[in-house]
Design a binder for these strands. Structure first.
Length: 227
DNA sequence: CCAGACGTTGTT
DNA sequence: GTCTGG
DNA sequence: CCAGACGTTGTT
DNA sequence: GTCTGG
């Protein structure tokens, strides 16, 4: 699955990416980059389509479903199985109207061994920055604060990631990302067909230090190859 | 009609 | 062991 | 995802 | 919010 990732890129590169690939040029706001260790509960850089144009902004990682929006400690869903998003009634409105992508340049998975867990970083050889498919939602919590929350969609691990883990985030290419974000998609069934394991031949993976285990370690050491 | 359920992963 | 928080 | 916390009463 | 079940 995907419970930790990186966007270890400087702000300028991300702004160039947003301009070139998504025609986003209103870029005054600071993007708080680079990030080496992004964890659930934190704000993640996301793209949506507002019906006229692509927009970027921050969403809080941990999707709060409508049915739980008013509880004191709502369920916060960090991943959703892409295979079943069309079957879950509580997701219907998000699937229809609140699809998004989350920007990353790598994600972490842990291999379980008899002696413990070993972290790995997985990247694309094709896209320095890549969009991960997500669904977002809005709610007003019990104190009246508005929150925009997001879950990352998952899919079966590809041939590379399979060595260490059974699931991986849905990574899209730029073309499919735009389709996924399309405000008036041809059909939701067609959109769901975009949610596939990333191609093996475009995937690279390497072991990293267990420094990454603690989200408090927001440091370049997280992405340095182990040994 | 209303009431009740509604996640994921990994591990067992 | 299990939940919470980042 | 992992790390960290994990209680109660009564007093301030 | 939306579907299922009774």
């Amino acid at each position: 699955m995907c419970g930790r990732f990186s966007l270890a890129t400087d702000e300028f590169s991300v702004k160039v990416y947003l301009a070139n690939r998504f025609n986003i040029n209103r870029n005054a706001a600071s993007l708080d980059l680079p990030r080496y260790n992004i964890a659930p509960g934190q704000m993640v850089l996301s793209l949506i389509n507002d019906g006229r144009a692509f927009r970027h902004g921050y969403l809080k990682w941990g999707y709060v479903p409508d049915y739980d929006a008013k509880s004191q400690n709502p369920q916060r869903i960090i991943n959703l199985r892409s295979e079943t998003i069309l079957e879950k009634s509580y997701l219907a409105a998000s699937v229809a109207k609140r699809r998004c992508v989350i920007l990353a340049d790598g994600f972490y998975e842990w291999r379980k061994t008899s002696t413990g867990k070993i972290p790995f970083r997985i990247r694309s050889t094709d896209q320095e920055l890549f969009p991960m498919a997500g669904l977002w939602n809005s709610h007003t919590d019990s104190r009246g604060n508005k929150e925009h929350t997001v879950a990352i969609l998952t899919v079966a691990a590809n041939g590379i990631v399979k060595d260490i883990h059974e699931r991986m985030p849905v990574i899209l290419n730029d073309t499919d990302a735009k389709l996924w974000l399309e405000a008036q998609p041809p059909s939701l069934v067609e959109l769901k067909q975009l949610l596939l394991p990333y191609p093996d031949e475009l995937t690279t993976m390497y072991e990293v230090s267990d420094i990454v285990n603690s989200y408090a370690n927001e440091s370049p050491a997280c992405i340095v190859p182990a040994n």
